[in-house]
């Protein structure tokens, strides 16, 4: 293909994403520097184009970092920020512990069973996320199924719904396929003769796992962890439906500021802080995806 034609196919999606994905971030950044106003849209200043460049200059002068100063001085925002990171970090940790044995077990099955198992892990992802989270309410609520089962076994009832525990259950449940599949992808390709070599050299099965299998699966661990951690930091539906009023997370904060308090600048500033936090993990994730693509070419 001739050089000028290269990337021609990229034109339409490039323009689309430029207008509807990249450009709106500038608007969010701009709005985070604005003030709230009793108007529609509820923020000031607006650019007065009728005054030409003077209008634009007046607009730029009116922008300030007041909203950010408000975020830093308010303890509620700071604890929402820290609690989001904690939920995502601990959630990713639990997912690794829960997901690894599942992925490992799948990779050990015969090839025909493996294909069916991969399908079985992907399938729940196709059914409504909202409905699956809703089903957990019916399981975890005080007079729900979990407590009915516990009572039948003669065990004391648990009050889990509207607590942080319920949020962890929801996070682990919703993101499990995103952890299992990347782990399975690396474990399935592993050369079994390496383990035989380790055994021949006097390595026990446990030691062989920690010295051979696990280190070789680290790219999958990294991919799974990033794929779960990044969206979890900004998760809204799970903490909103399963967590209590005391459960603070940034996604919930943005939602409340926007819909309940109609404080658009605050919602935007929180979004910018969230984005700034996630930039490094997102770049790491993109690099990894690009590497996989290069390897496949």
């Amino acid at each position: 293909m001739k050089a000028p034609r290269r990337g021609l196919a990229a034109l339409a999606p490039f323009l689309w994403l430029g207008v509807f994905f990249a450009f709106p971030f500038l608007l969010v950044a701009k709005l985070s520097l604005s003030d709230t106003a009793l108007a529609m849209p509820p923020y000031a200043p607006q650019i007065d184009w009728s005054k030409g460049l003077a209008g634009l200059a007046a607009f730029v002068r009116a922008l300030d970092f007041e909203t950010y100063a408000r975020l830093v001085s308010d303890r509620l925002y700071i604890s929402a920020y820290l609690s989001s990171l904690r939920f995502a970090a601990i959630g990713t940790g639990i997912l690794l512990i829960v997901g690894y044995p599942i992925a490992y077990g799948m990779a050990r099955c015969p090839p025909a069973a493996r294909r069916a198992l991969v399908m079985a892990v992907i399938l729940p992802f196709w059914t409504s996320f909202l409905i699956r989270i809703y089903a957990w309410i019916a399981i975890l609520k005080p007079e729900g199924l979990l407590n009915a089962a516990l009572r039948a076994l003669g065990l004391p009832a648990l009050d889990i719904l509207d607590t942080d525990v319920a949020v962890y259950v929801g996070l682990v449940y919703a993101y499990l396929p995103f952890m299992v599949l990347p782990l399975y992808a690396v474990l399935e390709r592993q050369d079994h003769s390496l383990l035989e070599a380790a055994a021949d050299l006097g390595c026990g099965p446990t030691e062989a796992f920690w010295r051979v299998t696990f280190p070789l699966s680290l790219p999958g661990v990294g991919a799974g962890a990033l794929l779960c951690f990044i969206p979890m930091v900004g998760e809204f539906v799970i903490p909103d439906l399963l967590g209590g009023s005391k459960t603070l997370m940034l996604g919930k904060t943005i939602w409340t500021e926007f819909f309940a308090n109609r404080d658009w600048p605050a919602a935007s500033a929180v979004a910018i802080v969230l984005l700034a936090t996630l930039v490094i993990p997102i770049v790491l994730y993109q690099r990894q995806q690009a590497r996989i693509l290069e390897a496949g070419r």
Partner: peptide, 17 residues
Amino acid sequence: MIYAPLVMPEVILGLSL
């Protein structure tokens, strides 16, 4: 721009749009 929306929290996408 192709990979970022895959992991971008939905609240940010919704707000920016």
